[in-house]
C-alpha cells in the first residue's frame, strides 16, 4: 500500500498525518482514553506503523513483528486479533482502528465489551456461534505454539468439560448469551482482555508530553 498523507487542521504545529489519522479529541470522546492518552498511543502507533513498510499504517507483518519479534511467524490468535482490529477490512490497521480496538482492552472498559470482542475472536468462522470444533482447533493451535503437551484425549476432555459448563442449551455451540453467562462465572476466561499498560500509557510513552496541545 502506498503512502497517503493528509494535512491536519493546524499545520503550524502538527506533523503531517498518515492515512486514517483521526483527531485525538474525537477518539477520546468515543473511547476509554483521555486526549493525552490518545496522543501517547499515537507515539506507539507511529513506531509500529513504520517498523517495516514506512507508510504509517500497521500491516499484519508489523503486528506480528511487535508481538513476536519476527514478521514471519503466523499465529492463529494474533491473526484473529489483527482481523478484528482491522475494522474497515482493508488489510491494515489505521490509527482510529488501533485506538478504538485497544480501548476494549483498557482495564476500565466494560466487561460486556470485552466479552463481545472475545466472542468474535473465538468465532473463527464467523457463524455467530463458538462451535465445539472451533474451540478444539484453538486449543490445538495454542498447544502447537507452546511448550505445553497434552494428549488428544486430554484435549477432548478439556474441550468437552468447558462446553458442558458453557453450552447450557446443549446444542453443541455457544451463542452470545451463553458466552456472557459463562464469562460471568469464569471471569479469568477474559484475563487476556485487560492490558494494565493502558492505565499508565502516558508514563510508558512520556515523549508525547512535549507535543501535546491539550490539558485533559
Amino acid at each position: 500500500m502506498g503512502c497517503a498523507w493528509s494535512s491536519s487542521s493546524s499545520p503550524s504545529r502538527r506533523q503531517r498525518r498518515a492515512q486514517g489519522y483521526e483527531e485525538p479529541a474525537v477518539l477520546a470522546a468515543e473511547t476509554s482514553f483521555t486526549v493525552s492518552e490518545v496522543e501517547a498511543l499515537y507515539e506507539l502507533y507511529n513506531k509500529l506503523s513504520y517498523s517495516i513498510f514506512k507508510d504509517g499504517l500497521i500491516h499484519k507483518e508489523e503486528f506480528r513483528l511487535a508481538l513476536f519479534r519476527t514478521s514471519e511467524r503466523a499465529n492463529l490468535f494474533a491473526d484473529r486479533v489483527f482481523h478484528l482490529f482491522d475494522l474497515k477490512r482493508n488489510g491494515v490497521i489505521e490509527f482510529g482502528e488501533f485506538v478504538r480496538s485497544l480501548s476494549i482492552f483498557h482495564p476500565k472498559a466494560l466487561v460486556s465489551d470485552k466479552a463481545a470482542f472475545a466472542f468474535k475472536l473465538y468465532d473463527l468462522r464467523g457463524t455467530g456461534y463458538i462451535e465445539k470444533e472451533e474451540l478444539r482447533e484453538m486449543v490445538v493451535a495454542l498447544l502447537d505454539e507452546s511448550d505445553l503437551c497434552l494428549s488428544d484425549s486430554a484435549v477432548d476432555e478439556i474441550v468437552d468439560n468447558t462446553f458442558s459448563q458453557a453450552d447450557t442449551n446443549g446444542d453443541g455451540r455457544l451463542d452470545p448469551r451463553e458466552w456472557e453467562e459463562f464469562v460471568k462465572k469464569n471471569p479469568t476466561s477474559l484475563r487476556n482482555m485487560s492490558l494494565p499498560y493502558l492505565q499508565d500509557i502516558t508514563t510508558t510513552f512520556p515523549s508525547f508530553a512535549t507535543h501535546s496541545e491539550v490539558n485533559d
Binding site: 513506531k47 513476536f68 490468535f77 486449543v139 495454542l142 505445553l148 478439556i158 474441550v159 476466561s189 492490558l195
Partner: peptide, 25 residues
C-alpha cells in the same frame, strides 16, 4: 490435573493474545 482447566483460560495463554508485547516492542 489437566481436566480441571477451562479451555478458554488455556487459550488465554497464547502469545498471540498477549498484546502487552506491543508496548514492549
Amino acid at each position: 490435573e489437566p481436566v480441571a482447566l477451562n479451555a478458554f483460560e488455556l487459550i488465554s495463554m497464547s502469545a498471540g493474545l498477549n498484546l502487552g508485547n506491543l508496548f514492549d516492542s
